[in-house]
Design a binder for these strands. Structure first.
Lengths: 210, 210
DNA sequence: AACGATTTTGGACGACTGTCGAGTTCTTCT
DNA sequence: AGAAGAACTCGACAGTCGTCCAAAATCGTT
């Protein structure tokens, strides 16, 4: 017979999880500011209402904290991109809306995006990060695929490129734009906008026989 | 009147530079193994015939060493890609040779490539890395552009995409393949090969009116 | 109000970091 | 051979790191 889940137990678990999230958010804040290599547990704690000791009360060690952060980042990420997927009725509308949304997040959430690329690079070295990174990549890939598929549909054709390839092309475009933007290039946003629109046309070419 | 450059002076400078290169190569070895975040000066020295103190004899501080390493990496990189640029006489030959060369370096030089992506991510946080990273990126972009231009020429058309966009698409493709390869996916190499060939066709579509 | 459990604090620990400099070894030239 | 300078070693330094833990504070229940 299983132990029934009492109300008090779930309340405790909820509170525990809430605090974990709170600490993870403070950690994400610090990580996006300093980067993985320069972020310490004490620095994270200073950007939170707690002392540094509490981190080991809610997380076994640093790896578990960072892993939890990466997973949490994904939630933020998906939400962000879900907002991007517009309910456009024409190809032109979708293309313009999508490009605009990407450019907006490039500028508004630059530090969070650079953290993502930092952690993805860490996954090249630390095996413990790989599973989560690959999962986030796949999630983003599906997002992009939905946009491109819909665009191709509106244009009256099918995507000319596999989902995986399509995603990495958009990702490469964004990554480069992020570096330029953080380097102070005012042209970064504009280049990204035209790049995205060009790429959309490329992977979903207008059906000439329509 | 300028001070004439004596033979002995240049010999000393040469020796000094030679040792700097030697130390930088040891550092690159260690960096590619451990990643930026986990590499210390002592660890670098242990992967060299010298003690850790010597690093401050040849480099002012850690930043100068790493910067020198990045610049040196570029030299290796360019050499590598220069080998890739084949003297193909047909589009098919060039496409096959280029794809094959990329797949080969993906497997053979995986740790060096992951170091590059690590350092490029660091440039998102540390301003001191940006100039060198951007320069290397531009160099790689020109390499890719040469291949794509030549391919388009052989196909009898012009590239359909600007140089910057073309580069980041190939780069995104490679970056993803590297993560998959290091994660143990045997399919990574094959996917990269087909991805590269597909992308070549995409950015330099065969001229149907020829 | 008082008790036990949970949560939080902050100091201590050993290990490691980048940096520095005094001393030793090796080169080079007269 | 011996002096002068360059090249190198290695211990010391002041910090910082992740981790742990005993004590204090807070909370929920009676």
């Amino acid at each position: 017979m299983m132990t029934p889940t009492t109300g008090i137990d779930t309340a405790r678990v909820d509170k525990f999880e809430a605090r974990r999230r709170e600490l993870a958010d403070a950690a994400l804040q610090t990580l996006s500011e300093l980067g993985y290599a320069r972020t310490s547990l004490r620095e994270i704690a200073q950007n939170s209402p707690f002392s540094h000791g509490v981190l080991h009360y809610y997380f076994r060690d640093k790896v578990e904290l960072i892993t939890y952060c990466v997973r949490r980042y994904k939630a933020v990420c998906v939400r962000r991109y879900d907002e991007i997927v517009a309910e456009a009725t024409t190809a032109e509308e979708l293309s313009a809306g999508f490009a605009e949304a990407i450019v907006t997040t490039l500028v508004a959430d630059a530090t969070m995006h650079r953290l993502w690329y930092d952690l993805r690079s860490q996954a090249l070295f630390e095996e413990s990060f790989r599973a989560d990174v690959l999962e986030i990549d796949n999630t983003l890939q599906r997002m992009i695929w939905r946009v491109v598929s819909r665009y191709a549909e509106l244009v009256g054709t099918g995507p000319s490129t596999p989902a995986a390839t399509t995603y990495v092309m958009f990702d490469g475009l964004f990554q480069r734009a992020l570096l330029l933007h953080l380097s102070g290039a005012e042209t970064a946003a504009d280049e990204l906008r035209t790049g995205v629109r060009h790429l959309l046309e490329l992977v979903a070419p207008p059906d000439l026989n329509r």
